[in-house]
Design a binder for these strands. Structure first.
Lengths: 116, 116
DNA sequence: CGCATAATCAACCTAACGGTTGATCAACTG
DNA sequence: CAGTTGATCAACCGTTAGGTTGATTATGCG
């Protein structure tokens, strides 16, 4: 597999188990055992999934005695969002030209508001 | 690899060659040979990449004599966008609570506008 | 028909993925 | 210290990904 950041992120997301783990982490930190609990899978397998997520920068791990709490890190998701954003107008075609223009204007005024 | 739609899409995107192909197709339809031209790779390899993209629904292929023109299909990218959208507030933390609330309100009014 | 072109099919190879089991390390607890 | 718990490491295994080369199919052209 390619090892550029975006490829690592997409590859990490291309697995339902890992996406479920991220969904769980969106609710707060969790230990490896807590994350493994819902799955019919060995703890070691979950540990490997976490390593994949960590390599992609999607999680970080702390240290609390013998527990290694995992925390969601959204930065790579923002990269994904920015990448996919370049194709946004492709699926907004159905709105037609006028409505697409409205979206564009709306986005640009949002830009002014946020970035000033 | 898992074969649910989202996993197929993420997996298809987890390769720089395939992402470049999509970028090329964003400019318009193209034949397999045209798509293969920039890459130092056999035509068969590109053909396989196209099959992966097709299985994910990211492209469709027509038929024009011996050419099989490829066309970008953005629907799966919209699915990706919707999935990642659930985490948007995670990387917008830096805007602070007030601004995040503004975003939430803004989104909900957009929803009213689009879905009615 | 005979041939060139566009693209796919088929077989093969290496490396990585996703899972297993068993052993090990690290930290708390009695 | 001995034992338990949390988690990782290591080796292994079957399958798939991503590339190659060689053969094959389909279309257009002289």
């Amino acid at each position: 597999m390619a090892n550029d950041p975006l490829s690592l992120t997409f590859a990490a997301l291309a697995d339902p188990t890992r996406r479920e783990i991220l969904a769980r982490l969106a609710e707060g930190e969790a230990t490896v055992n807590a994350l493994a609990e819902p799955f019919d899978m060995s703890l070691q397998a979950i540990s490997k999934h976490l390593k994949v997520l960590e390599r992609a920068g999607l999680i970080t791990r702390g240290r609390d005695a013998q527990w290694r709490p995992c925390r969601l890190e959204a930065a790579p998701l923002e990269e994904v969002d920015q990448w996919v954003d370049r194709y946004r107008d492709r699926w907004e075609e159905r709105f037609g030209r006028l409505d697409r223009e409205l979206h564009r204007i709306q986005n640009s005024t949002e830009g002014e508001k946020n970035h000033e």
